[in-house]
Design a protein around this nucleic acid. Structure first.
Lengths: 208, 208
DNA sequence: AAACTTACTAAACAGTGTTTAGTAAATAAA
DNA sequence: TTTATTTACTAAACACTGTTTAGTAAGTTT
């Protein structure tokens, strides 16, 4: 009975085509322009077809945001090979920040917008936001390595990870949401300031 | 010629009524529900009338976001009377964070959403986002006080302020946008973690 | 050949921001 | 006082949005 299996494959393939098309429009033209109708048109199906694969737009955006985490995972994949904990932490932060700057719409979906989390809330089986957890766990492991190497003081590692994450996310989100714009109009070099802030933050973490 | 002046007053009053109604709906029912039509209905005017006072929705949201900064300013007004720089910094951060938790929609408008900044970009006279600048300047002055009192090491103060702001905003925005949700579902007390992270961050800043 | 299932969509519903054309009243000019 | 003009306002339309419903046409099973 290969027929029903082929049908299932076809179904999954169409689902993937929807996600890909949605992601492309989302990346190219931004959140606003990524309408169900525009996505449907790109894959040459009717808008209603999308609802055979996704409960609502939130669920589709949730699927896209997972693609974003996959993208980020690729960028992070070589991090653990960096022996020095502190150097790894520096690179980790830089990758995260660069990802946000290079993919502001996707970063927004992953860490700022309500949509993907709404989807989690709606489906009863608690997803627990595994995507975000994975990023966080990487940071936790990194910080544990730093502690093992005596580079930073022993502290409750989850709290420490939360602190580092908050800082990096703060820089990333204020930047991509235009809140450092005031510096630019005052003639200051924002990128340079971020770089300097980065160094300040890292130095603070060094155990004396 | 009191007539034209009265007319001008009436005009400004209606403008203010629009802002107030918009703010109320925005606060009560969230960003999504604050439609032009809903705002118009509340003040018993037609939707088109709103466009006689505001170029577009972004401009209206920009006006609302200024009300938010006024609200925040009230909460901050007694801060400078705190003599100890470090204590003032602590209280400043707490007020900022508490404001975000108590008024998530308004905080979103002030520091996360695109709308108000779009309005700035659209009108040619560079607004420079004075609202945000004011908050930032308060932090800068606070940090200068800390340095004067030898509580923190001498560093380029704008970079330092950016660092502190990013951290606090990071905590605030990740919290209100549900990204700490994963901790909750793991049985951790998020508020306690934030409190702990707060202490970690403040201790990092203390000069040894 | 008839019954059933699947995959899909046209069209509608209820909402959105925004613009246009037009009205009715208040004011200014004749 | 009558006419002209400006002002304040809105009904209705336009072009969108997410989503649902009812129906069709093809494929599969009986």
């Amino acid at each position: 009975m290969g027929i029903s299996e082929r049908k299932e494959r076809d179904k999954q393939e169409l689902r993937q085509r929807i996600i890909d098309a949605a992601k492309d429009i989302f990346i190219e033209q931004g959140f606003e322009k990524a309408s169900i109708r525009a996505i449907a048109e790109r894959i040459e199906y009717s808008p209603a077809t999308i609802y055979l694969h996704f409960k609502d737009k939130d669920e589709l955006l949730h699927a896209i945001h997972e693609v974003g985490f996959l993208q980020l995972a690729v960028l992070k994949k070589d991090l653990t090979s960096i022996q020095d904990g502190f150097e790894q932490l520096t690179q980790r932060a830089k990758i995260y920040l660069q990802f946000a700057i290079d993919n502001p719409e996707m970063y927004g979906l992953m860490f700022i917008q309500d949509a993907p989390m709404e989807a989690i809330k709606k489906c009863k089986e608690e997803d627990e936001w595994n995507c975000g957890m994975e990023v966080f766990e990487g940071l936790v492991q990194n910080l544990l390595l730093c502690m093992k190497q005596g580079l930073i003081p022993e502290t409750e590692v989850h709290v420490l990870a939360m602190t580092v994450w908050a800082y990096i996310h703060g820089i990333a989100s204020l930047y991509i949401k235009g809140r450092f714009f005031m510096f630019e109009s005052k003639g200051l070099d924002v990128h340079q300031m971020i770089e300097a802030s980065f160094k300040v933050m890292l130095n603070l973490f060094k155990s004396k």
